[in-house]
Amino acid sequence: MKQFREVFMKIVFMISACASILAILLICVFLFSNGIPAIAEIGAGDFLLGTTWKPLNDIFGIFPMIIGSLYVTAGAIIVGVPIGLLCAVFMARFCPPKIYSIMKPAVDLMAGIPSIVYGFFGILVIVPLVQDLFGGSGKGLLTASVLLGIMILPTIVGVCETSLRSVPEQYYEGSLALGATHERSVFCVVLPAAKSGVLAGIILGVGRAIGETMAVIMIAGNQAVIPTGLTDGLRTMTANIVLEMGYAEGLHREALIATGVVLFVFVLIINLSFSALKGKK
């Protein structure tokens, strides 16, 4: 009896453990089986590279959205990585314990704030600011980049800090002993040693930025065209799905699901390179 219970529970644990595998498989099956036929019907080239998105006329080209997502992500990286990395350096190497006990919860809290609240903050603060400085509607690439840059900060700070801390203390001490200043030791010895972890953090930030939805919808303007300037409005793949899924039917709906598939593939590639980097370390 006892033996039976042990074996039975072991099997229960094992089945639960397979839940996440099952979830991934289901997600793949449902997305691909609903999205791929639409891509085939529209034509992969027309769908991925078409520059016109006019669902009413049955023209489905998501190239502007892909570009939009990439631009916004790049913008977020430009804004978020320098601040995030330096902040991580501060927390790992410069911060007195007292300040650390404030910084750490603050960064954790930043990660916990819902994206809709960030979006709301963006619309109340950043949009009017950009409007005043550059004119136009204030909604667009620049606004989205700044807000997303803020939103990916906690991710980058967290991963970078962990990897900076995992560098052996001897590296730092050795550098000090050779006469380098504290800053020089940190930036020229410790930081390069933590390179792969820092890169992993940036990649994770890219994943966050490209998948961000609600905040982007509120501040990016959502025009389905390729932006030509910093203040131009744009639409990301995520925004495309949320904006039109509510009323879409038939091929339009499937095209939106296919947009989700493209996004999913992007994220998978990003995740795999993240795992690969982590594995290498």
Binding site: L31, G211, L263, V267
Partner: peptide, 9 residues
Amino acid sequence: GIPSIVFGL
């Protein structure tokens, strides 16, 4: 790492 909108879809 999957974005929440993909979960939603």
